[in-house]
Amino acid sequence: AREMGVIAAMRDGFGFIKCVDRDVRMFFHFSEILDGNQLHIADEVEFTVVPDMLSAQRNHAIRIKKLPKGTV
């Protein structure tokens, strides 16, 4: 199932999404941004959540798609 959120932080090559449906900041890597979009803080996005290979306690966001403002 796809989830929605807002870009909360951007770093060098990765960032975090503030999720709508869960009280966490979800890690993502820039390589998972679809359509070659440039994302910025406060952009609204949808994404798929998958378990982190390195840590069973953590998840991360993949297949991130920018949404029109006002969607979330």
Rank of each mutant, 00 (worst) to 15 (best):
F30M: 07
R63M: 08
R63S: 10
P51S: 15
K66F: 03
H60V: 13
I17D: 01
V45Q: 01
K18A: 10
M4Q: 14
I64S: 00
F14V: 09
T48M: 15
R58G: 13
G15A: 03
V24P: 11
I7S: 04
F14D: 10
E46K: 03
F16R: 02
I33H: 02
F47L: 01
D43P: 01
L54D: 14
G36Q: 12
N37P: 09
N37W: 05
F14T: 07
K65D: 01
Q57D: 14
D21R: 10
F27H: 11
Q57P: 09
G13P: 02
F28E: 15
V72F: 03
M4S: 08
E46P: 04
E44C: 05
K69W: 07
I64W: 00
M53N: 12
E3Q: 08
N59H: 14
K65Y: 02
L67T: 05
H60W: 03
G15L: 03
L34N: 06
V50P: 05
D35A: 06
E32D: 15
I41F: 07
K18V: 05
R63K: 14
V24W: 02
K65M: 05
M4P: 01
E3P: 04
K66A: 04
G70P: 01
R22C: 04
D21K: 11
I62V: 13
A8L: 11
F30E: 12
R58H: 10
P68W: 00
F47M: 00
I17L: 03
A56F: 04
L39N: 05
G15Q: 04
A61G: 03
R11Q: 15
F30A: 09
A1M: 11
N37I: 15
V24F: 05
R11V: 06
K66P: 03
F16T: 10
V24Q: 13
R58C: 09
L39S: 02
M26Q: 02
N59Y: 12
F30C: 10
L67W: 02
F14M: 09
K65F: 11
V50I: 10
G5R: 12
I41N: 10
A1C: 05
K18H: 11
L54N: 12
D12Q: 13
D52N: 10
M4F: 14
A56C: 08
M10R: 08
D43C: 02
N59F: 13
R25K: 14
E44S: 05
Q38K: 13
K65G: 03
T71C: 05
I33Q: 01
I33N: 02
A8G: 03
I62W: 03
N37R: 11
V50T: 06
A56V: 11
G15P: 00
A8D: 13
P68L: 05
Q38P: 07
S55A: 08
G13A: 06
E44D: 06
R25P: 14
V45K: 01
D23H: 02
M53H: 07
M53V: 12
L54M: 15
L34F: 04
K69F: 10
F16P: 00
R58T: 10
A61W: 05
D23G: 11
M26T: 05
C19L: 05
A1S: 09
V49T: 09
I64Q: 00
E44F: 02
G36M: 08
I17G: 00
F16W: 14
Q57G: 13
D52A: 11
